[in-house]
Amino acid sequence: MATSPSAEAPTAPGATAPRPFRVARRRRETKDTWTLELEPLQGDPLAAAPGQFTMLYAFGVGEVPISVSGDSTGPLVHTVRAVGAVTEAICRSKPGTVLGVRGPFGNPWPVGIDVGLDVVIVAGGIGLAPLRPVLYHVLARRDEYGGVALLYGTRTPADILYASELERWRGRFDLHVGVTVDSATAGWRGRVGVVPKLVAGASFDPASTIALVCGPELMMRFTARSLLERGVPADRIYVSLERNMRCGAGHCGHCQLGPTLICRDGPVYRYDEVAAFAEVPEL
């Protein structure tokens, strides 16, 4: 070609080949969910912002996209639910095991932009994991925000993630924590019901609120509806979406959702930008 394309532009390190990371700590959260702390065998630690994800590789088994779930100022932390061959292999990884990491990829939650606002974090199931870094971020600079609420729904009391941490947070006077389960078991004295219902009862000023939502798509749709009914503007509701992410770099096409590539343009989106096509079945 007469004018050579931008072939000289640098490829981000770790975009193609996984970097080896050692499992430093592993903690069981629930029956099928584990939290892993990872440290690189060589080189700099991986700096990922809240909401970003990495491609986690179990040697010889395969690779999956997993959101970061730790404090962005600390080591790389992932919370993984064992639902398939790769996630099972990752959850089986005892301390010392080496996993591969590519990334980080994707766009973060808009933390840091909207200081001064009330913050409403709504999580469903494993969707709490990608939101935990937001809570760490907000609590580390608590004075910069108005009211902060964490609304969390999961299937049963046994499925509650980060249970001791949630109890600690619930003891704070500057944080409202609401937890609900789909179905109670013996001994549960908390709320039963779906998480969008918690939105109606939470205390925040809709006109100056930013809401961050992550969970199953149906849960996010109903949560967004509840937030809109309370008067939160659609352009201050953010959701994190999931599709089949394979390359992470916007090249393989698998994570398309209508006009966007989720690994490149997401996974975090402003709700009003995706609402229309997120509701089209099988898009």
Binding site: P5, S6, A7, T11, A12, A249, G250
Partner: peptide, 17 residues
């Protein structure tokens, strides 16, 4: 698709250059 985004596809770039 391969050369003008945030990440460059290195294999494509090498063949294309």
């Amino acid at each position: 698709v391969f050369l003008e985004g945030r990440h460059v596809e290195r294999d494509y770039a090498a063949r294309r250059k």
